[in-house]
Design a protein around this nucleic acid. Structure first.
Length: 375
DNA sequence: CGCAGCCCTCAAAATAGTAT
DNA sequence: ATACTATTTTGAGGGCTGCG
């Protein structure tokens, strides 16, 4: 007998029987469940589990639509009254989210890029966080989560967290202090380093360009129209280029004091449509968020929320491998009552009918059919 | 030269949006 | 409803250019 959407409970029970859920210090966390008729987040909360095994058993018995754990640690995680609940500390977390356009594979490529930027360019280089303290998760659908596993960071207060995420998102960056060379400040870390990278990129990109090509290039990256001629002229001058290579930007500043401001805007505009566009600021700032539990299934995609290694971000293939490893590829038979589009490596239309497919595809297929029927 | 128009910047204020 | 943010609007101000 093939499984249909009516058998999802059975399929999920099978899944959770084998799954291993991952929550550190579960006895300090608030656990929350999303019911199948919930549409605005989990409604069954707060729930307390002393051990991860008790949560697994509970899920096998009641395979809810979603399972979440608080990023905060509480003295009494199951206390309803927030005053008595007593927040002890909160994981420092980052939530990257983005609408899926194109295939899931392409989505993974983009999100991997952004997550790597966050980890390598900001957490490691700017904040000196050790890579082995950085935990990465794929949330199961649109999001990637990054958690810093460091006790000092867990004790950061809300305003510390705000400062940190604002820094990463490039808010309130002071343009007068961004570029080295216009004053006496040496190149150092932080946004100066990001700014310096832009200078080097521009030099590389305009190497050997004629004036017309430079004008086009500077227009494209967003230098104001009435100054592209000026900066193109400057960059055509070998002496200027050499000075810039050596880190002396006075040559630009002296020619027009606004040029460095223009470059700052280029840098920040680009960042805002890149990493900053996918970072959810509020999640990092808040000390009481819920994160989907790694090992649990996301109801919308049918994919599991999974732990990743930083190196898994090098290719979507690694993420798919992990998904397959977690869910399993033993064949199961399903019967679809409606046509669906399965978007895994690529979009694939399945018309209604019976299929035998690996478990890691079968679960998404059933959940997508269920989702389609609800909308 | 003086003047108008254009393009841009900056900051303040108004408005819109979002999460408890 | 409230607190907090983000976005949009507005207006002052300054440099540049073209024109009479």
């Amino acid at each position: 007998m093939p499984y249909t959407i009516k058998d999802l409970v059975i399929v999920l029970r099978e899944y959770y029987t084998r799954a291993s859920l991952d929550i550190t210090d579960i006895h300090r966390r608030e656990i929350a469940f999303e019911r199948w008729n919930d549409f605005r987040g989990p409604s069954l909360r707060p729930v307390y589990f002393q051990y991860i095994d008790s949560l697994s058993k509970f899920l096998i018995e009641y395979p809810y639509a979603g399972v979440y754990a608080s990023t905060g640690y509480y003295l009494d995680p199951n206390e309803v009254d927030m005053n008595k609940k007593t927040l002890m500390k909160t994981d420092l977390v980052f939530d990257l989210d983005m609408k899926i356009e194109g295939t899931r594979y392409e989505f993974f490529e983009k999100m991997c890029k952004h997550t790597k930027t966050l980890i390598h360019d900001f957490l490691i280089k700017d904040f000196g966080i050790s890579p082995d303290k950085i935990k990465v998760e794929f949330s199961g659908n649109k999001g990637f989560h990054v958690t810093v596993d460091d006790e000092d960071m867990r004790n950061m207060d809300v305003s510390d967290r705000r400062q940190m995420i604002d820094y990463i998102m490039g808010l309130k960056v002071d343009k007068n202090n961004l570029f080295s060379g216009n004053k006496t400040s040496p190149v150092s870390g932080g946004w100066r380093r990001h700014a310096d990278n832009l200078i080097r990129e521009i030099l590389k990109h305009t190497e050997g360009s004629n004036n017309g090509e430079m004008v086009d290039y500077f227009l494209e990256i967003g230098i104001p129209k009435n100054r592209v001629k000026k900066i193109s002229g400057l960059l055509s001058n070998a002496r200027v280029r050499n000075a810039m290579k050596a880190g002396h930007l006075n040559v630009l500043y002296d020619a027009d004091s606004r040029l460095l401001g223009d470059l700052k805007n280029v840098l920040l505009r680009r960042h805002k449509s890149g990493l900053a566009a996918v970072l959810d600021r509020a999640v990092t700032v808040s000390t009481h968020r819920l994160f989907r539990v790694p090992g649990s299934i996301h109801r919308k995609s049918g994919l599991p929320c999974i732990n990743l290694e930083i190196s898994d971000l090098e290719s979507p293939d690694f993420i798919f491998e992990k998904i397959i490893q977690v869910v399993g590829e033993d064949p199961i038979e399903i019967e679809l009552g409606h046509d669906i589009v399965l978007d895994l490596y690529e979009k694939e239309t399945l018309s209604k009918g019976t299929y035998t497919m690996p478990r890691w595809k079968a679960i998404p297929a059933l959940l997508i059919e269920k989702k389609n029927m609800q909308t």
